[in-house]
């Protein structure tokens, strides 16, 4: 446990002090800001723009959110293990008395905390809406919290995919592309429910559709099925990453 704490502190330092992370943050907030601006435009046009959805749903349902997530998650995680392998520090790290799992989890936890920090400034948007009430839009705190829960769950799985991709290669670019590919497949699969095909197929697709999950969360619907879906996917991706880190000890 102490080892995990020591590793986590080092990883947080490495992430929060790296220029890549700040570039990613700038990019992310620019995209989210643009998204928020478009939302305001919609609201200004009146009810027909926001039919049925909540404000946070409009924000999270936008293509901008997904684009930002698709790019930002692999960028946060690409460095984690690939860079250690490339620079050779991996050898120094793994010959210290540390478990493979502690190393992977510390790197993952640091990435997750950075991801959460990315989202923190976006809380200003609903707060601004609520305080200013410029358009008299209703603001449901429950739906807002559920929306952020969904954001964290999807992010958690995307980051786990990124850490896994970073564990299999020594090149950051490959790691980023690998993580991007996994998240992309997941995102595109999210549109399956909207493509007409058989009843069973459609329902199955619904279970794995990130887009629908997020819209549900943003409506304030906290369903255990999507929660389990993300927790399980995160867990097995991290397990796979630990196996990759231990692969050098395979006989």
């Amino acid at each position: 446990m102490r080892t995990f704490g020591v590793l986590l502190r080092r990883e947080l330092g490495a992430i929060f002090l790296s220029p890549i992370a700040w570039t990613a943050m700038t990019f992310f907030l620019a995209v989210m800001g643009a998204s928020f601006w478009m939302l305001l435009e919609l609201l200004a046009r009146g009810a027909e723009g926001t039919e049925g959805g909540t404000v946070i749903g409009q924000l999270l349902g936008s293509i901008f959110f997904w684009l930002a997530l698709l790019i930002v998650a692999p960028v946060i995680t690409m460095r984690t293990l690939a860079e250690e392998r490339r620079s050779g520090t991996f050898e120094m790290l793994m010959t210290a008395p540390v478990r493979d799992g502690a190393v992977v989890l510390a790197k993952y936890a640091a990435a997750l905390l950075f991801y959460a920090a990315l989202w923190l400034p976006t809380l200003a948007y609903p707060i601004a809406l609520r305080l200013l009430r410029p358009l008299g839009a209703p603001m449901d705190v429950g739906a807002l919290a559920a929306g952020y829960l969904g954001v964290m769950l999807i992010g958690a799985a995307a980051l786990a995919a990124g850490v896994f991709a970073s564990a299999v290669t020594r090149s950051q670019v490959t790691a980023a592309l690998g993580g991007f590919a996994i998240v992309c497949v997941f995102f595109l699969a999210g549109f399956l429910p909207y493509i007409p095909h058989g009843e069973t197929m459609s329902r199955a697709a619904h279970y794995a559709s990130g887009v629908t999950h997020l819209l549900d969360f943003a409506r304030g619907v906290v369903d255990t099925r999507p929660i389990a879906f993300y927790v399980i996917n995160t867990a097995w991706l991290l397990w796979a990453a630990v196996q990759m880190v231990g692969a050098r000890r395979w006989k």
Partner: peptide
């Protein structure tokens, strides 16, 4: 290890304290 790989983004004190705690 050969070629002595270190975390180049850390300061000497910081690195040695990290390694000490880790070990």
């Amino acid at each position: 290890p050969e070629r002595c790989p270190l975390y180049t983004d850390m300061r000497v004190d910081e690195f040695l304290r990290f390694r000490a705690a880790l070990k």
